[in-house]
Design a protein around this nucleic acid. Sequence first.
DNA 1: TATTGTTATACTCTATAACTATA
DNA 2: TATAGTTATAGAGTATAACAATA
Lengths: 147, 147
Amino acid sequence: MAGGDGRAPDALCVEVAELIGTVVARYHEEYELAAAEHALTGAQARVLTLLSHRPTPMRQLARHLKCEPSNVTGIVDRLEARGLVERRPDPADRRVKVAAATEEGHATATRLRGELDFAGEPLQELTPAERRLLRDLLRRMLGGTAH
Amino acid sequence: MAGGDGRAPDALCVEVAELIGTVVARYHEEYELAAAEHALTGAQARVLTLLSHRPTPMRQLARHLKCEPSNVTGIVDRLEARGLVERRPDPADRRVKVAAATEEGHATATRLRGELDFAGEPLQELTPAERRLLRDLLRRMLGGTAH
DNA sequence: TATTGTTATACTCTATAACTATA
DNA sequence: TATAGTTATAGAGTATAACAATA
């Protein structure tokens, strides 16, 4: 951490950190709001979004969400009860269950994606050149591990 | 939202949106991790941080957290049980209870703050001029409502 | 009457541990 | 024996509704 190794806390860094905090807060607000409009929780919306990209075994889903596999059981249960997701067997390994979005699940995910385009509106405030600048700065900040 | 009003989804905007998503995810990871090191949940850490700035009535705390007042009762209960927070009467209105960090609460909040300096490390990747650039871009993006 | 805080209730998310069926 | 998924359990956060004390 900055300031934890003897450097004085830099006012500019603090301000940027606060701005990022604001971005994070607003991102979450919009995410939860958009999910709620489809009667989904944040966790359910995240799983549905993942599954709308590709069918995924339960275990792998847990790794993506960085939570225990037992949690995924419940989340997928609730999505399945609403007909948005289904469990399919894996022909190659009968232990594995592959969660996949149903047709209705895909439709919901698509509508969700449109509403979840957090950065879309704020980014209209910037010119294309500024967006490229922002992209490059964020890339540098996040280092090689991003993407 | 971009693309929701007829505009074609812009690859650059999508990329920036994904980068921001990465920032948000990393921010939360670090926040929860730092909180957990003090055996605090995210919500408890947020309340303790708020109270370390200033004592706050329960109702106002709920508004800050954007949740129902009944939730705050439980969070403050658990912080109070650990001696990090206390409830004080408001001399001006006997209905009000003012939650305040204890001495130990302030100490914990201070240690937490050092570890929570999310942007500190990543920002070291940027030059001071780049940091100013990033600050200005974020300010423009967030518009007048930030801060 | 309106407001503050709490209680009671129900649901979701979370981790841990034990279980089953496969491998 | 190891792995994939589930169940059981317990704790925490959340919203809703009803309540007591105070304004």
